[in-house]
Design a protein around this nucleic acid. Sequence first.
RNA 1: GGUCGGUUCGUCUAGGGGUCUAGGACACCGCCCUUUCACGGCGGCGACACGGGUUCAAAUCCCGUACCGACUACCA
Length: 496
Amino acid sequence: MTTRVRFAPSPTGYLHIGSARTALFNYLYAGHTGGKFLLRIEDTDAARSTDESTRSILEGLKWLGFAPDEEIVFQSNNAPKHRAIALKLLAEGKAYRDFTPKETRADGNIKQSIADRARQNQGEKNMRDNPFRDLPKEESDAKAGAGEPFAIRLKVPETGKTVFEDAVYGTQERDYKETEDLVLLRSDGHPLYNLAVVCDDIEMEITDVIRGQDHLTNTHKQVLIYEALGETAPRFAHLPLILAPGGKKLSKRIHGEIVSMTTYRDSGFLAAAFRNFLALLGWSAGEEREIYTLDELVEKFSLEHIHKNNAVFNFDQNNPKHWTDDKAIWMNAEYVRQMPLVELLPFVKAELKSAKLWRDEYEDEDRAHFERTIDLIRERFFTLKDFSNQGRAYFSEDFDFDPKAIDKNLKKFPDLQTWLPELADRLETIEDFTHDNLEAVVKNFAEEKGAKLGVIMNGARALLTGLAVGPSMLAVFEILGKEKSILRLKSRIAWN
RNA sequence: GGUCGGUUCGUCUAGGGGUCUAGGACACCGCCCUUUCACGGCGGCGACACGGGUUCAAAUCCCGUACCGACUACCA
Protein backbone atom coordinates (compact mmCIF):
# COMPACT_ATOMS: atom_id res chain seq x y z
CA MET A 1 0.00 0.00 0.00
CA THR A 2 1.41 3.38 -0.89
CA THR A 3 1.57 5.83 1.92
CA ARG A 4 -0.59 8.90 1.84
CA VAL A 5 0.14 11.70 4.24
CA ARG A 6 -1.36 15.11 4.60
CA PHE A 7 -0.45 18.49 5.96
CA ALA A 8 -3.58 20.00 7.46
CA PRO A 9 -3.19 23.58 8.65
CA SER A 10 -6.06 25.67 9.90
CA PRO A 11 -6.11 29.06 8.19
CA THR A 12 -6.15 31.23 11.26
CA GLY A 13 -2.84 32.97 10.63
CA TYR A 14 0.22 32.80 8.45
CA LEU A 15 2.35 29.68 8.03
CA HIS A 16 3.95 29.21 11.41
CA ILE A 17 7.46 27.85 11.71
CA GLY A 18 6.20 24.79 13.57
CA SER A 19 3.61 24.10 10.89
CA ALA A 20 6.25 24.53 8.24
CA ARG A 21 8.33 21.87 9.95
CA THR A 22 5.30 19.58 10.13
CA ALA A 23 4.74 20.12 6.42
CA LEU A 24 8.40 19.35 5.76
CA PHE A 25 8.35 16.10 7.71
CA ASN A 26 5.20 14.97 5.92
CA TYR A 27 6.77 15.88 2.62
CA LEU A 28 9.98 14.03 3.43
CA TYR A 29 8.11 10.99 4.63
CA ALA A 30 5.99 10.86 1.51
CA GLY A 31 9.10 11.20 -0.62
CA HIS A 32 11.01 8.61 1.33
CA THR A 33 8.24 6.04 1.11
CA GLY A 34 7.31 6.85 -2.45
CA GLY A 35 3.89 8.00 -1.30
CA LYS A 36 1.71 11.01 -1.77
CA PHE A 37 1.82 14.32 0.03
CA LEU A 38 -1.59 15.94 0.32
CA LEU A 39 -2.81 19.26 1.56
CA ARG A 40 -6.01 19.92 3.45
CA ILE A 41 -7.09 23.32 4.68
CA GLU A 42 -8.97 22.88 7.94
CA ASP A 43 -11.33 25.79 7.73
CA THR A 44 -14.25 24.41 9.70
CA ASP A 45 -14.08 27.27 12.16
CA ALA A 46 -15.72 29.89 10.01
CA ALA A 47 -15.31 32.52 12.68
CA ARG A 48 -11.54 32.29 12.79
CA SER A 49 -10.62 31.14 9.30
CA THR A 50 -9.76 33.73 6.69
CA ASP A 51 -8.95 33.61 3.01
CA GLU A 52 -6.03 35.83 3.75
CA SER A 53 -4.57 33.15 6.01
CA THR A 54 -5.16 30.48 3.41
CA ARG A 55 -3.33 32.56 0.83
CA SER A 56 -0.48 33.22 3.20
CA ILE A 57 -0.13 29.53 4.08
CA LEU A 58 -0.22 28.52 0.43
CA GLU A 59 2.39 31.15 -0.31
CA GLY A 60 4.63 29.87 2.45
CA LEU A 61 4.31 26.29 1.22
CA LYS A 62 5.01 27.35 -2.30
CA TRP A 63 8.11 29.20 -1.21
CA LEU A 64 9.32 26.11 0.64
CA GLY A 65 8.63 24.03 -2.43
CA PHE A 66 6.04 21.65 -1.01
CA ALA A 67 3.53 21.17 -3.78
CA PRO A 68 0.71 18.75 -2.94
CA ASP A 69 0.38 15.67 -5.14
CA GLU A 70 -3.37 15.98 -5.39
CA GLU A 71 -5.88 18.75 -5.37
CA ILE A 72 -6.15 20.77 -2.19
CA VAL A 73 -9.04 19.72 0.04
CA PHE A 74 -11.00 22.43 1.82
CA GLN A 75 -12.50 20.84 4.85
CA SER A 76 -15.47 23.17 4.99
CA ASN A 77 -16.63 21.72 1.66
CA ASN A 78 -17.07 18.39 3.38
CA ALA A 79 -19.25 19.70 6.19
CA PRO A 80 -22.41 18.04 4.82
CA LYS A 81 -20.66 14.66 4.84
CA HIS A 82 -19.42 15.21 8.35
CA ARG A 83 -22.92 16.11 9.44
CA ALA A 84 -24.32 13.00 7.81
CA ILE A 85 -21.79 10.85 9.61
CA ALA A 86 -22.62 12.43 12.95
CA LEU A 87 -26.29 11.75 12.27
CA LYS A 88 -25.49 8.18 11.34
CA LEU A 89 -23.67 7.70 14.63
CA LEU A 90 -26.69 9.19 16.37
CA ALA A 91 -29.03 6.80 14.61
CA GLU A 92 -26.83 3.89 15.59
CA GLY A 93 -26.93 4.94 19.20
CA LYS A 94 -23.19 5.63 19.24
CA ALA A 95 -23.82 9.30 19.78
CA TYR A 96 -26.52 11.27 21.53
CA ARG A 97 -28.19 14.65 21.48
CA ASP A 98 -27.08 16.99 24.22
CA PHE A 99 -29.69 19.65 24.89
CA THR A 100 -27.58 21.48 27.46
CA PRO A 101 -27.49 25.12 26.41
CA LYS A 102 -24.21 26.17 24.86
CA GLU A 103 -21.81 27.72 27.29
CA THR A 104 -20.88 31.25 26.44
CA ARG A 105 -17.26 32.14 26.98
CA ALA A 106 -15.57 35.44 27.27
CA ASP A 107 -13.15 35.67 24.38
CA GLY A 108 -10.34 36.86 26.65
CA ASN A 109 -8.24 33.97 27.78
CA ILE A 110 -10.19 30.94 26.83
CA LYS A 111 -7.26 28.68 27.64
CA GLN A 112 -7.05 30.07 31.13
CA SER A 113 -10.75 29.74 31.85
CA ILE A 114 -10.72 26.15 30.64
CA ALA A 115 -7.76 25.29 32.81
CA ASP A 116 -9.39 27.00 35.78
CA ARG A 117 -12.61 25.12 35.31
CA ALA A 118 -10.72 21.87 34.98
CA ARG A 119 -8.89 22.59 38.20
CA GLN A 120 -12.18 23.18 39.91
CA ASN A 121 -13.37 19.75 38.90
CA GLN A 122 -11.05 18.34 41.52
CA GLY A 123 -10.92 14.66 42.09
CA GLU A 124 -13.37 12.30 40.54
CA LYS A 125 -15.23 14.00 37.79
CA ASN A 126 -17.47 11.62 35.99
CA MET A 127 -17.25 12.23 32.28
CA ARG A 128 -20.49 10.32 31.71
CA ASP A 129 -22.77 12.33 33.96
CA ASN A 130 -24.57 14.10 31.13
CA PRO A 131 -28.34 13.85 31.80
CA PHE A 132 -29.07 13.52 28.09
CA ARG A 133 -26.66 10.66 27.55
CA ASP A 134 -29.23 8.02 28.24
CA LEU A 135 -32.35 9.93 27.37
CA PRO A 136 -34.82 7.51 25.74
CA LYS A 137 -34.88 7.83 21.99
CA GLU A 138 -38.52 8.97 21.92
CA GLU A 139 -37.90 11.78 24.36
CA SER A 140 -34.82 12.90 22.52
CA ASP A 141 -36.65 12.83 19.20
CA ALA A 142 -39.53 14.74 20.69
CA LYS A 143 -37.33 17.51 22.05
CA ALA A 144 -35.49 17.76 18.77
CA GLY A 145 -38.78 17.75 16.92
CA ALA A 146 -39.98 20.62 19.06
CA GLY A 147 -37.05 22.63 17.80
CA GLU A 148 -34.89 22.52 20.91
CA PRO A 149 -31.27 23.08 19.93
CA PHE A 150 -28.80 20.31 20.63
CA ALA A 151 -25.23 19.30 20.06
CA ILE A 152 -24.32 15.77 19.14
CA ARG A 153 -21.84 14.07 21.42
CA LEU A 154 -20.04 10.82 21.00
CA LYS A 155 -21.16 8.22 23.51
CA VAL A 156 -17.84 7.11 24.89
CA PRO A 157 -18.09 3.62 26.42
CA GLU A 158 -18.09 3.38 30.22
CA THR A 159 -15.13 1.10 30.50
CA GLY A 160 -12.08 0.35 28.46
CA LYS A 161 -9.22 2.34 27.04
CA THR A 162 -7.99 3.71 23.79
CA VAL A 163 -4.65 2.40 22.65
CA PHE A 164 -2.55 3.37 19.71
CA GLU A 165 1.02 3.01 18.68
CA ASP A 166 2.78 6.28 18.06
CA ALA A 167 5.80 6.09 15.80
CA VAL A 168 7.59 8.66 17.91
CA TYR A 169 6.19 8.38 21.43
CA GLY A 170 5.50 4.67 21.53
CA THR A 171 2.39 2.96 22.85
CA GLN A 172 -0.18 5.42 24.11
CA GLU A 173 -2.98 4.35 26.40
CA ARG A 174 -5.78 6.32 27.93
CA ASP A 175 -8.64 5.16 30.02
CA TYR A 176 -12.06 6.00 28.61
CA LYS A 177 -12.92 7.71 31.84
CA GLU A 178 -10.33 10.41 31.08
CA THR A 179 -12.10 11.31 27.88
CA GLU A 180 -15.29 13.33 27.84
CA ASP A 181 -18.21 12.64 25.53
CA LEU A 182 -16.79 14.92 22.90
CA VAL A 183 -19.00 17.07 20.76
CA LEU A 184 -19.17 15.92 17.16
CA LEU A 185 -21.64 18.45 15.84
CA ARG A 186 -22.30 21.88 17.25
CA SER A 187 -25.86 22.96 17.96
CA ASP A 188 -25.67 25.17 14.87
CA GLY A 189 -24.89 22.10 12.80
CA HIS A 190 -21.18 22.76 12.34
CA PRO A 191 -18.98 19.68 12.53
CA LEU A 192 -16.13 19.96 14.99
CA TYR A 193 -12.45 19.36 14.50
CA ASN A 194 -12.09 15.78 15.71
CA LEU A 195 -15.01 14.53 13.66
CA ALA A 196 -13.95 16.44 10.57
CA VAL A 197 -10.37 15.22 10.77
CA VAL A 198 -11.34 11.61 11.11
CA CYS A 199 -13.89 11.73 8.31
CA ASP A 200 -11.53 13.48 5.95
CA ASP A 201 -8.57 11.28 6.77
CA ILE A 202 -10.74 8.27 5.99
CA GLU A 203 -12.02 9.76 2.78
CA MET A 204 -8.57 10.85 1.67
CA GLU A 205 -7.27 7.40 2.54
CA ILE A 206 -4.55 8.78 4.74
CA THR A 207 -2.22 6.06 5.94
CA ASP A 208 0.05 8.05 8.22
CA VAL A 209 -0.85 11.05 10.29
CA ILE A 210 2.20 13.13 11.08
CA ARG A 211 1.38 16.18 13.16
CA GLY A 212 2.37 18.19 16.21
CA GLN A 213 2.56 16.64 19.64
CA ASP A 214 -0.15 19.00 20.82
CA HIS A 215 -2.57 16.57 19.17
CA LEU A 216 -1.45 13.58 21.20
CA THR A 217 -4.50 13.67 23.46
CA ASN A 218 -6.81 14.49 20.59
CA THR A 219 -5.67 11.28 19.01
CA HIS A 220 -7.42 9.27 21.70
CA LYS A 221 -10.66 11.01 20.87
CA GLN A 222 -10.13 10.37 17.22
CA VAL A 223 -9.40 6.73 17.83
CA LEU A 224 -12.74 6.57 19.60
CA ILE A 225 -14.42 7.98 16.50
CA TYR A 226 -12.64 5.49 14.25
CA GLU A 227 -13.89 2.73 16.52
CA ALA A 228 -17.46 4.02 16.47
CA LEU A 229 -17.27 4.17 12.71
CA GLY A 230 -15.81 0.69 12.49
CA GLU A 231 -12.79 1.99 10.64
CA THR A 232 -9.12 1.22 11.11
CA ALA A 233 -7.14 4.17 12.34
CA PRO A 234 -4.08 5.27 10.38
CA ARG A 235 -0.58 5.13 11.83
CA PHE A 236 0.28 8.11 13.97
CA ALA A 237 3.52 9.97 14.45
CA HIS A 238 3.53 13.00 16.70
CA LEU A 239 6.23 15.58 16.41
CA PRO A 240 7.90 17.44 19.26
CA LEU A 241 7.01 21.10 19.47
CA ILE A 242 9.13 24.07 18.55
CA LEU A 243 9.33 26.42 21.49
CA ALA A 244 10.48 29.98 22.11
CA PRO A 245 13.60 30.72 24.20
CA GLY A 246 12.96 29.76 27.78
CA GLY A 247 10.84 26.83 26.69
CA LYS A 248 7.73 28.94 26.30
CA LYS A 249 5.23 28.58 23.55
CA LEU A 250 6.11 30.30 20.32
CA SER A 251 3.25 32.64 19.61
CA LYS A 252 2.32 35.22 17.07
CA ARG A 253 1.08 37.59 19.70
CA ILE A 254 4.22 37.57 21.80
CA HIS A 255 6.92 36.85 19.26
CA GLY A 256 5.50 38.47 16.19
CA GLU A 257 6.86 38.09 12.71
CA ILE A 258 9.65 35.80 13.77
CA VAL A 259 7.31 32.81 13.66
CA SER A 260 6.05 33.48 10.15
CA MET A 261 7.50 31.79 7.12
CA THR A 262 7.02 34.87 4.97
CA THR A 263 9.39 36.77 7.24
CA TYR A 264 12.20 34.51 6.19
CA ARG A 265 11.32 34.71 2.56
CA ASP A 266 11.23 38.49 2.80
CA SER A 267 14.47 38.66 4.75
CA GLY A 268 16.47 37.10 1.98
CA PHE A 269 16.51 33.50 3.13
CA LEU A 270 16.89 30.73 0.62
CA ALA A 271 14.10 28.17 0.90
CA ALA A 272 16.64 25.36 0.57
CA ALA A 273 18.59 26.68 3.54
CA PHE A 274 15.52 27.15 5.69
CA ARG A 275 14.27 23.69 4.87
CA ASN A 276 17.63 22.28 5.83
CA PHE A 277 17.52 24.18 9.11
CA LEU A 278 13.97 23.04 9.86
CA ALA A 279 14.82 19.44 9.11
CA LEU A 280 17.39 19.47 11.87
CA LEU A 281 14.95 20.78 14.45
CA GLY A 282 13.61 17.63 16.05
CA TRP A 283 15.23 15.20 13.72
CA SER A 284 18.72 14.14 12.77
CA ALA A 285 20.17 11.50 10.54
CA GLY A 286 22.36 10.41 13.40
CA GLU A 287 25.56 11.63 11.83
CA GLU A 288 27.84 14.59 12.20
CA ARG A 289 26.64 16.51 9.26
CA GLU A 290 24.53 19.62 8.87
CA ILE A 291 24.13 20.40 5.20
CA TYR A 292 21.78 18.21 3.19
CA THR A 293 20.12 18.67 -0.15
CA LEU A 294 16.39 18.01 -0.32
CA ASP A 295 17.06 14.72 -2.07
CA GLU A 296 19.42 13.66 0.68
CA LEU A 297 16.87 14.57 3.33
CA VAL A 298 14.23 12.53 1.53
CA GLU A 299 16.59 9.61 1.29
CA LYS A 300 17.69 9.70 4.92
CA PHE A 301 14.44 10.66 6.59
CA SER A 302 12.82 8.24 8.97
CA LEU A 303 10.31 8.50 11.78
CA GLU A 304 12.59 6.59 14.12
CA HIS A 305 15.05 9.45 14.28
CA ILE A 306 12.50 12.00 15.36
CA HIS A 307 13.08 13.23 18.88
CA LYS A 308 10.64 13.15 21.73
CA ASN A 309 11.74 16.34 23.35
CA ASN A 310 10.73 19.79 22.22
CA ALA A 311 13.23 22.03 20.51
CA VAL A 312 13.86 25.68 21.22
CA PHE A 313 13.96 28.10 18.34
CA ASN A 314 16.57 30.45 19.67
CA PHE A 315 16.53 34.17 19.10
CA ASP A 316 16.85 37.44 20.95
CA GLN A 317 14.21 40.06 20.32
CA ASN A 318 16.41 42.73 21.84
CA ASN A 319 19.47 42.02 19.77
CA PRO A 320 19.28 42.74 16.03
CA LYS A 321 22.32 40.57 15.43
CA HIS A 322 20.46 37.57 16.80
CA TRP A 323 16.99 38.53 15.58
CA THR A 324 16.38 34.90 14.61
CA ASP A 325 18.06 31.58 15.32
CA ASP A 326 21.81 31.89 14.76
CA LYS A 327 21.96 28.52 13.18
CA ALA A 328 19.33 29.44 10.63
CA ILE A 329 21.35 32.49 9.69
CA TRP A 330 24.53 30.47 9.49
CA MET A 331 22.81 27.83 7.41
CA ASN A 332 21.59 30.45 5.00
CA ALA A 333 25.08 31.94 4.73
CA GLU A 334 26.44 28.50 3.91
CA TYR A 335 23.98 28.21 1.07
CA VAL A 336 24.60 31.72 -0.21
CA ARG A 337 28.32 31.12 -0.24
CA GLN A 338 28.45 27.56 -1.35
CA MET A 339 25.62 26.76 -3.68
CA PRO A 340 26.52 26.57 -7.36
CA LEU A 341 26.59 30.07 -8.78
CA VAL A 342 24.09 29.24 -11.51
CA GLU A 343 21.57 28.23 -8.90
CA LEU A 344 22.13 31.33 -6.85
CA LEU A 345 21.95 33.78 -9.73
CA PRO A 346 18.17 33.77 -10.21
CA PHE A 347 17.72 34.67 -6.55
CA VAL A 348 20.26 37.45 -6.78
CA LYS A 349 18.53 38.72 -9.87
CA ALA A 350 15.19 38.86 -8.10
CA GLU A 351 16.74 40.65 -5.17
CA LEU A 352 18.49 43.22 -7.35
CA LYS A 353 15.33 43.74 -9.31
CA SER A 354 13.29 44.46 -6.24
CA ALA A 355 15.96 46.93 -5.14
CA LYS A 356 15.94 48.53 -8.59
CA LEU A 357 19.56 47.62 -9.11
CA TRP A 358 19.09 45.10 -11.86
CA ARG A 359 20.25 45.71 -15.41
CA ASP A 360 19.54 43.44 -18.32
CA GLU A 361 23.12 43.41 -19.51
CA TYR A 362 23.93 41.39 -16.38
CA GLU A 363 22.71 38.33 -18.15
CA ASP A 364 23.75 39.46 -21.56
CA GLU A 365 26.98 41.14 -22.62
CA ASP A 366 28.00 41.79 -19.03
CA ARG A 367 27.23 38.33 -17.79
CA ALA A 368 30.75 37.04 -17.13
CA HIS A 369 31.67 40.11 -15.19
CA PHE A 370 28.43 40.04 -13.24
CA GLU A 371 29.03 36.46 -12.24
CA ARG A 372 32.54 37.21 -11.10
CA THR A 373 31.20 40.07 -9.03
CA ILE A 374 28.61 37.91 -7.31
CA ASP A 375 31.09 35.18 -6.70
CA LEU A 376 33.48 37.64 -5.10
CA ILE A 377 31.07 39.46 -2.83
CA ARG A 378 29.01 36.50 -1.69
CA GLU A 379 31.93 35.20 0.34
CA ARG A 380 30.96 37.41 3.23
CA PHE A 381 27.21 37.55 2.80
CA PHE A 382 24.50 35.94 4.88
CA THR A 383 21.28 36.59 3.05
CA LEU A 384 20.04 37.62 -0.35
CA LYS A 385 19.38 41.07 1.09
CA ASP A 386 23.10 41.61 1.45
CA PHE A 387 23.45 41.76 -2.32
CA SER A 388 21.36 44.90 -2.46
CA ASN A 389 22.48 46.42 0.84
CA GLN A 390 26.17 45.85 1.40
CA GLY A 391 26.65 44.94 -2.22
CA ARG A 392 24.98 48.08 -3.51
CA ALA A 393 28.20 49.81 -4.52
CA TYR A 394 28.89 47.03 -6.99
CA PHE A 395 25.74 47.80 -8.92
CA SER A 396 25.15 51.49 -8.53
CA GLU A 397 26.87 54.83 -8.05
CA ASP A 398 24.21 55.72 -5.57
CA PHE A 399 25.33 53.97 -2.41
CA ASP A 400 25.63 54.99 1.23
CA PHE A 401 28.77 55.49 3.23
CA ASP A 402 28.99 53.81 6.56
CA PRO A 403 29.95 56.57 9.02
CA LYS A 404 32.19 54.14 10.84
CA ALA A 405 34.13 53.42 7.68
CA ILE A 406 34.48 57.12 6.97
CA ASP A 407 35.76 57.92 10.44
CA LYS A 408 38.04 54.98 10.80
CA ASN A 409 39.48 54.77 7.32
CA LEU A 410 39.23 58.23 5.87
CA LYS A 411 38.94 61.08 8.36
CA LYS A 412 41.57 59.65 10.61
CA PHE A 413 44.10 60.20 7.82
CA PRO A 414 43.51 63.68 6.35
CA ASP A 415 46.30 63.15 3.83
CA LEU A 416 44.08 60.71 2.04
CA GLN A 417 42.02 63.64 0.89
CA THR A 418 44.76 64.51 -1.58
CA TRP A 419 46.36 61.10 -1.89
CA LEU A 420 43.35 59.20 -3.09
CA PRO A 421 42.63 61.46 -6.09
CA GLU A 422 46.33 61.23 -6.83
CA LEU A 423 46.14 57.49 -6.70
CA ALA A 424 43.32 57.72 -9.18
CA ASP A 425 45.68 59.39 -11.63
CA ARG A 426 48.16 56.57 -11.19
CA LEU A 427 45.49 53.99 -11.86
CA GLU A 428 44.80 55.83 -15.05
CA THR A 429 48.20 54.71 -16.36
CA ILE A 430 47.46 51.00 -15.93
CA GLU A 431 46.72 49.36 -19.24
CA ASP A 432 45.79 45.95 -17.95
CA PHE A 433 43.65 46.64 -14.88
CA THR A 434 44.32 43.40 -13.02
CA HIS A 435 45.52 42.25 -9.64
CA ASP A 436 49.30 42.15 -10.13
CA ASN A 437 49.53 45.44 -11.94
CA LEU A 438 47.27 47.09 -9.41
CA GLU A 439 49.32 45.76 -6.57
CA ALA A 440 52.54 47.14 -8.03
CA VAL A 441 51.07 50.58 -8.56
CA VAL A 442 49.38 50.85 -5.18
CA LYS A 443 52.43 49.56 -3.34
CA ASN A 444 54.62 51.97 -5.16
CA PHE A 445 52.31 54.82 -4.39
CA ALA A 446 52.21 54.02 -0.70
CA GLU A 447 55.97 53.80 -0.51
CA GLU A 448 56.33 57.10 -2.27
CA LYS A 449 54.04 58.78 0.21
CA GLY A 450 55.65 57.04 3.12
CA ALA A 451 52.27 55.68 4.07
CA LYS A 452 51.30 52.29 5.27
CA LEU A 453 49.75 50.24 2.51
CA GLY A 454 46.82 49.43 4.78
CA VAL A 455 45.94 53.08 5.15
CA ILE A 456 45.74 53.51 1.40
CA MET A 457 43.84 50.28 0.87
CA ASN A 458 41.31 50.94 3.61
CA GLY A 459 40.78 54.48 2.52
CA ALA A 460 40.15 53.31 -1.00
CA ARG A 461 37.77 50.66 0.24
CA ALA A 462 35.71 53.20 2.13
CA LEU A 463 35.53 55.43 -0.89
CA LEU A 464 34.82 52.71 -3.43
CA THR A 465 32.35 50.61 -1.47
CA GLY A 466 31.22 52.79 1.40
CA LEU A 467 32.19 50.04 3.81
CA ALA A 468 35.04 49.16 6.10
CA VAL A 469 34.83 45.50 5.31
CA GLY A 470 34.80 43.46 2.16
CA PRO A 471 36.92 41.35 -0.11
CA SER A 472 40.58 42.00 -0.82
CA MET A 473 40.95 45.57 -2.06
CA LEU A 474 42.87 44.60 -5.16
CA ALA A 475 40.02 42.30 -6.11
CA VAL A 476 37.60 45.14 -5.52
CA PHE A 477 39.53 47.46 -7.83
CA GLU A 478 39.63 44.80 -10.44
CA ILE A 479 35.98 43.89 -10.27
CA LEU A 480 34.79 47.49 -10.17
CA GLY A 481 37.04 48.32 -13.09
CA LYS A 482 39.21 51.21 -13.98
CA GLU A 483 36.58 53.77 -14.74
CA LYS A 484 34.55 53.39 -11.59
CA SER A 485 37.59 53.06 -9.39
CA ILE A 486 38.96 56.34 -10.65
CA LEU A 487 35.66 58.11 -10.49
CA ARG A 488 35.07 57.12 -6.90
CA LEU A 489 38.60 57.86 -5.76
CA LYS A 490 38.16 61.39 -6.99
CA SER A 491 34.72 61.79 -5.51
CA ARG A 492 34.55 64.24 -2.61
CA ILE A 493 31.15 63.14 -1.45
CA ALA A 494 32.32 60.84 1.31
CA TRP A 495 34.36 63.57 2.95
CA ASN A 496 31.50 65.91 3.59
C1' G B 1 -6.19 19.87 39.84
C1' G B 2 -6.11 15.55 36.39
C1' U B 3 -4.14 12.84 32.12
C1' C B 4 -0.11 12.29 28.97
C1' G B 5 4.78 13.52 27.44
C1' G B 6 9.80 15.29 28.03
C1' U B 7 14.78 16.41 30.54
C1' U B 8 22.96 15.60 27.26
C1' C B 9 27.10 22.25 26.56
C1' G B 10 23.54 29.02 26.08
C1' U B 11 20.92 26.71 21.44
C1' C B 12 20.40 22.46 17.72
C1' U B 13 22.12 17.65 18.53
C1' A B 14 25.44 12.43 18.52
C1' G B 15 25.00 8.56 21.85
C1' G B 16 20.51 3.45 23.58
C1' G B 17 25.05 -0.62 29.52
C1' G B 18 31.84 -0.90 28.84
C1' U B 19 35.11 2.25 22.92
C1' C B 20 32.39 8.72 27.16
C1' U B 21 38.59 11.98 30.74
C1' A B 22 30.59 12.45 26.54
C1' G B 23 31.47 13.67 19.87
C1' G B 24 29.70 17.47 16.16
C1' A B 25 27.30 22.19 14.70
C1' C B 26 25.78 27.28 15.88
C1' A B 27 26.84 31.20 19.20
C1' C B 28 30.71 33.22 22.30
C1' C B 29 36.12 34.01 23.39
C1' G B 30 41.38 33.74 21.88
C1' C B 31 45.32 33.10 18.26
C1' C B 32 46.78 32.88 13.03
C1' C B 33 45.81 34.55 7.99
C1' U B 34 44.22 39.02 5.57
C1' U B 35 48.79 45.67 6.17
C1' U B 36 40.30 45.68 6.11
C1' C B 37 36.70 42.02 7.49
C1' A B 38 31.79 39.57 8.74
C1' C B 39 35.78 34.53 4.64
C1' G B 40 39.23 30.76 6.02
C1' G B 41 42.60 27.90 9.62
C1' C B 42 43.78 26.49 14.69
C1' G B 43 42.41 26.45 19.72
C1' G B 44 39.36 27.55 24.17
C1' C B 45 34.93 27.88 27.18
C1' G B 46 30.88 24.71 27.86
C1' A B 47 26.31 19.44 29.28
C1' C B 48 24.43 13.77 30.90
C1' A B 49 18.22 17.82 36.10
C1' C B 50 18.49 15.54 41.21
C1' G B 51 18.18 11.20 44.53
C1' G B 52 17.88 6.14 45.03
C1' G B 53 18.30 1.32 42.99
C1' U B 54 19.84 -2.90 39.23
C1' U B 55 24.85 -4.29 37.43
C1' C B 56 31.60 -6.09 37.73
C1' A B 57 30.20 -1.59 34.86
C1' A B 58 24.89 3.38 33.87
C1' A B 59 24.45 9.47 30.00
C1' U B 60 22.41 4.76 28.56
C1' C B 61 17.86 0.10 32.39
C1' C B 62 14.14 0.70 36.83
C1' C B 63 11.81 3.76 40.70
C1' G B 64 11.01 8.42 43.02
C1' U B 65 11.57 13.86 43.21
C1' A B 66 12.10 18.44 40.71
C1' C B 67 11.39 21.30 36.61
C1' C B 68 9.34 22.14 31.71
C1' G B 69 5.54 21.27 28.09
C1' A B 70 0.90 19.63 25.76
C1' C B 71 -4.06 18.56 26.51
C1' U B 72 -8.17 19.14 29.69
C1' A B 73 -13.82 24.08 24.19
C1' C B 74 -20.42 23.39 20.98
C1' C B 75 -11.22 26.19 18.84
C1' A B 76 -8.17 23.84 15.56
